[in-house]
Write a protein that binds this DNA or RNA. Structure first.
Lengths: 208, 208
DNA sequence: AGCTTAACGGAGCGCTGCGCTCCGCAATAT
DNA sequence: ATATTGCGGAGCGCAGCGCTCCGTTAAGCT
């Protein structure tokens, strides 16, 4: 052991569990068995269920962390001097840590007040990032912040079949294509109406 | 009844079953219950299992039909005078009938010889479509036919949550963005290596 | 009209695989 | 030496699946 004591082990277990849960849920989907998380974390079922009384509680904690990380990414993007690079970094980063993969949990788990708060804050930061790109004229103007959010979600979806490095590589190429498509002047216009905020939020369960 | 006789009903049932199976599998995934298909088709379990001895057999039939349709779409695209419009029509059409949604069946069902044959033919037609666009200079040259195939697959993935028309609309906007990205000169170059044919085919099970 | 027969719908069987509990054991603290 | 804490994992109860089987219905035949 790197550090002595049971408390230290407990702390390490907790981190390993969150890491494992993130990987398992984002690669296998939400109905992945809890035992798979325990196994990947190198931890027994007993230890898992002592920290999280239920699978839902674990998912809620995981969602919250993912949202906080997304918020950090958006703020980091705003820090960047170049509005386009700031946005691109945010999108690529969000896809890299599969931010959107936990969104379809909608209706499956109860959304806590804290989750709503962080989601709201993260959404606003992303909106500022998108607005800045729009004002700088580096992002096609017929695209909204929800289009960006759905793009991230789309590229965060768990891959079918066994995990393969080739898949991630292929996905990054497609993401690069999509990002190039976002830069285009876009005078052609996108089809249909932009996604409505009401629909977007309703997918997560009912408003607070 | 529109036509009399048991044979007529059987034929109608067969069509309804295939339609229902396509919709259920593409929107819910492959482990959707067989009973959901029977219900959507307005048919009892008995009738379903008289035509298809097993769920796998139904899936095989469905895959084959999807591949044949994809082949038709590719040939229709080649017929089109404008190389770009031909390709775009193929991509949009394939996404519309969720051609790629059945690909992740890989490893789940046994791939028949006939399926391999049709898949090969459809792949070749798509390759011609892509090559023509490349030669005409309307498709960025750092993109391969497998990138296109994976793009279609990506946009064919079943949507999370309950089916909503808004989702399809939002997806079409993202697809339009991606298509614009495909037209760009692309001198920037895509990241990583293009997907290898070996990996792509291996996902379907072992070669014939 | 009566009889035969084929196709129908759907209840339910057997089983797999899940979330979660419980308990014997090992490692620490006193 | 004893008490206590946290550990791993076997197994319980159950939900939901693929598939079968059978009573019922209705078309075809004479």
């Amino acid at each position: 052991m790197s550090t002595r004591g049971r408390q230290a082990e407990a702390a390490r277990n907790d981190l390993a569990l969150l890491r494992a849960a993130h990987e398992v849920f984002t690669t296998q989907g939400f109905d992945a068995p809890v035992s798979a998380i325990a196994r990947k974390a190198g931890v027994g079922m007993g230890s898992l269920y002592r920290r999280y009384r239920t699978k839902e509680e674990l998912l809620q904690r995981l969602c919250l962390i993912a949202m906080e990380r997304s918020l950090e990414r958006a703020e980091a993007g705003l820090t960047h001097a170049d509005p386009w690079e700031g946005l691109a970094l945010y999108v690529r980063g969000s896809v890299a840590d599969k931010s959107g993969a936990l969104a379809p949990v909608a209706g499956t788990i109860e959304v806590t007040d804290e989750m709503w708060r962080v989601a709201r804050t993260a959404g606003e930061a992303a909106a500022r990032l998108v607005a800045r790109a729009h004002e700088a004229g580096v992002l096609r103007n017929d695209v909204t912040r929800l289009d960006i959010a759905l793009l991230i979600e789309q590229f965060s979806r768990p891959a079918p079949g066994p995990p393969a490095p080739e898949h991630d590589q292929a996905e990054q190429r497609l993401l690069a294509v999509a990002l190039d498509g976002l830069r285009a002047p876009g005078t052609t216009g996108l089809p249909g109406e932009p996604p409505s905020p009401e629909w977007y939020e309703r997918r997560w369960g009912h408003a607070p």
